[in-house]
């Protein structure tokens, strides 16, 4: 089965992960800009990072026949540094023009501070001005519900096209708010801290899957890129057809990401004969 990893922090992972993903049917990964585990102090560090994910990382993925796309943003944890955020935002349009860059992300909220909210608004404004897709991070654990509500309130006060916005890391208590507001919703499957593969299948069975994306977890912390495959296996074990799996784990990312013409992977139909 052909699989797309819509949210994958490749720079934190090994070539062996690429190799195993290729062996399991992954055809493309999308790498949002994220927190490095420490707060970067200089805009230039972000610029080098953006160059890494827009220029170098695609070559590493290509060695395994995997397409690599990216997103650029200042993540919410570093948005407290307003000067740095403004300078990086000023230089971001250059990277939005890169052949593999799909949009602005992951922006969003962590502790939902005023500086984070201001940075989120600035990122969304920039994206809308340049007709870009937006990937929005929602907080983890106890901050999840409040942070997600705040993201929705911020977006409700802006002139945005919900079709172009993907709100990520939804769980059972937040998914309905996101879908009801007309946005795309992403589930992120972690070994411990976020949604699990089985809970994701429960959600897929409960809600309309039209605007749902499913991500594995792939970063420098405890995470596992193969939670996505685990989810697919559980989905199939429950009796859902191969085409239904393809619709969710390949075609939905194509439908959302394909709003950017740089994404040239098309939805596929499995022959039943």
């Amino acid at each position: 089965m052909q699989i797309i990893q819509p949210h994958y922090h490749a720079i934190a992972r090994t070539a062996q992960d690429y190799e195993r993903m290729a062996m399991s049917g992954v055809v493309a990964v999308c790498e949002p800009a994220f927190w490095a585990g420490f707060d970067r102090r200089h805009p230039e560090t972000f610029i080098d990072y953006f160059a890494q994910i827009s220029e170098f990382e695609p070559t590493r993925a290509a060695e395994f026949g995997i397409r690599h796309f990216c997103w650029v943003a200042v993540n919410p944890k570093e948005a407290e540094n307003t000067e740095l955020t403004q300078e990086v935002l000023r230089q971001m349009p250059e990277f939005l023009g890169k052949p593999n860059c799909l949009g602005v992300g992951e922006t969003g909220l962590h502790k939902s501070t005023q500086n984070e909210i201001a940075a989120l608004e600035a990122h969304v404004e920039l994206a809308m001005k340049h007709d870009q897709l937006v990937l929005i991070h929602t907080p983890h654990l106890s901050d999840k519900a409040h942070g997600t509500k705040t993201v929705l309130e911020v977006l409700a006060g802006m002139d945005v096209n919900p079709d172009k916005i993907w709100i990520d890391h939804v769980e059972e208590q937040t998914i309905e708010w996101v879908l009801d507001a007309g946005y795309w919703a992403g589930m992120t499957l972690y070994p411990v801290t976020k949604c699990s593969p089985r809970r994701a299948v429960d959600i897929l069975e409960k809600y309309s899957t039209e605007r749902l994306l499913v991500n594995s977890s792939a970063d420098w912390g405890p995470s596992d890129p193969f939670t996505l495959q685990e989810c697919i296996v559980d989905f199939r074990k429950r009796g859902h057809s191969l085409q239904e799996a393809v619709e969710i784990f390949h075609n939905n990312p194509c439908r959302f990401l394909g709003q950017n013409p740089k994404w040239d992977i098309k939805p596929i139909q499995i022959s039943e004969s």
Binding site: P191, S196, R198, R199, K206
Partner: peptide, 20 residues
């Protein structure tokens, strides 16, 4: 704590899955 939280959520999800 987080592992126990995860495991309890899995049990909650199983009970919801059964009810559905």
């Amino acid at each position: 704590y987080l592992e126990a939280r995860r495991d309890l959520l899995e049990v909650a999800a199983l009970l919801d899955r059964y009810d559905e």
